[in-house]
Write a protein that binds this DNA or RNA. Structure first.
Length: 353
DNA sequence: AACTCGTGGCC
DNA sequence: TGGCCAAGAGT
């Protein structure tokens, strides 16, 4: 492989064909950092509106450092992987306090920040500071597995190191940013998971898999195991003009998000059974239960099968960790999709505005 | 190393 | 429609 020629072909193509994305309009390390966190396991088209809103609300590192947790969660609502934004804020606060607000420019220092792993460290270093450091994501592993004909399983953690070493051999020291982004852009536009567009590829002459006609066999990636299912009872309990809501635990799935009371329960609950369970668990007078919706919500590793009920409460105190809120107040709270599905069902039913 | 942690789009 | 995926990190 002629490395100089490869760098030139990749970088020239990238500068010519790169998409016009919001985070390519800035040199602000904070903004590039935010984009890299949002883009983790998330599609570009999904990220764009979140990125724009988020930076309108938190335009500077200090603005994010000073925000309330509920505020940042609300800004992240609907994007998923909510620990990302908590870790991002923790990292930002550390930069504010330990580095005077300037994002550090060495792998050692930036990697020590919350939420900044090997990929994000290299991405921010190369894109914001022009440091020749590897930034190996799924795109890069796919692209280089083909170009270099690497047959190791990219689903295995150990394999990433092999690609990091490869990038350090190949990376341009004149333009590390365009080189790293070029590899990712190539993976997104040309060297796609299925049916790569080799005839449009700017580096196909450097590609070992293309020369052997084996581009469709790579990368090697073992399949993920499929997820399990759990049944829940979700209850919108109305008392006067308020509904009972609870905050999820600070750790784990959808940490810190708000929802109608949610209880693990058997499938196909009757309204009477739901009333009985709710009365016992909430230690209150719950009546008039009616089923509103039944839906599946598929997370990456688990599936919720939710049966949603509307019910009435009488002279109930809010149990620990729960609150009575008006509909207006409810909409200020960060809520994940299962809760939103229930709210939508209540709107359809005319229970909610 | 294996598992957790969301969402929406695609075929 | 179910499986797979998309600029990963924390534990």
């Amino acid at each position: 492989m002629n490395i100089q020629q490869f760098q030139h072909d990749l970088i020239t193509w990238f500068k010519e064909e790169k998409r016009d994305l919001p985070w390519r309009q800035t040199a602000d390390p904070y903004r590039i950092w935010v984009s890299e966190i949002m883009l983790q396991q998330t599609r570009v088209d999904t990220v764009i509106p979140f990125y724009n809103r988020f930076l309108e609300k938190f335009p500077t590192l200090e603005a994010l450092a000073g925000a309330e947790e509920q505020e940042i969660l609300k800004a992240w609502e609907g994007l998923g992987y909510y620990s990302r934004v908590r870790n991002l804020q923790a990292g930002v606060r550390e930069v504010s306090e330990q580095y005077g607000g300037t994002v550090p420019d060495t792998r050692k220092d930036i990697s020590a920040l919350k939420g900044v792993g090997p990929y994000t460290a290299g991405a921010v270093l190369s894109i914001a500071y022009g440091v020749p450091e590897h930034a190996v994501d799924g795109n890069v592993m796919r692209v280089l597995s083909r170009i270099l004909l690497i047959e190791e399983d990219i689903a295995k953690p150990k394999t990433r190191k092999r690609f990091e070493e490869a990038v350090m051999q190949l990376i341009s020291h004149e333009d590390p940013s365009s080189f790293n982004q070029g590899l990712m852009e190539l993976g997104a536009l040309i060297c796609t998971p299925t049916t790569p567009k080799c005839l449009l590829c700017p580096v196909r002459e450097h590609c070992a898999a293309f020369h052997e006609g084996r581009q469709n066999e790579l990368p090697v990636k073992t399949k993920a195991k499929k997820n399990k299912s759990v049944s829940f009872l979700m209850a919108a309990i109305r008392q006067e003009d308020k509904f009972l809501v609870e905050q999820r635990p600070a750790q784990g799935l959808l940490a810190g998000m708000w929802q109608f009371p949610l209880l693990e329960a058997k499938a196909d609950l009757l309204p009477a059974e739901a009333e009985e369970i709710l009365t016992a668990v909430l230690k209150g007078d719950v009546d008039q239960a009616e089923k509103v919706i039944s839906f599946k919500h598929i997370f990456s590793h688990i599936t919720w099968e939710v049966e949603g009920f509307i019910a009435g409460g009488k002279n109930m105190e809010a149990p620990n960790g729960m609150r009575w809120v008006t509909v207006r107040e409810m909409h200020e709270l960060p809520m994940a999709n299962p809760m939103k599905k229930m709210i939508e069902a209540l709107k359809v039913r005319g229970v909610l505005e």
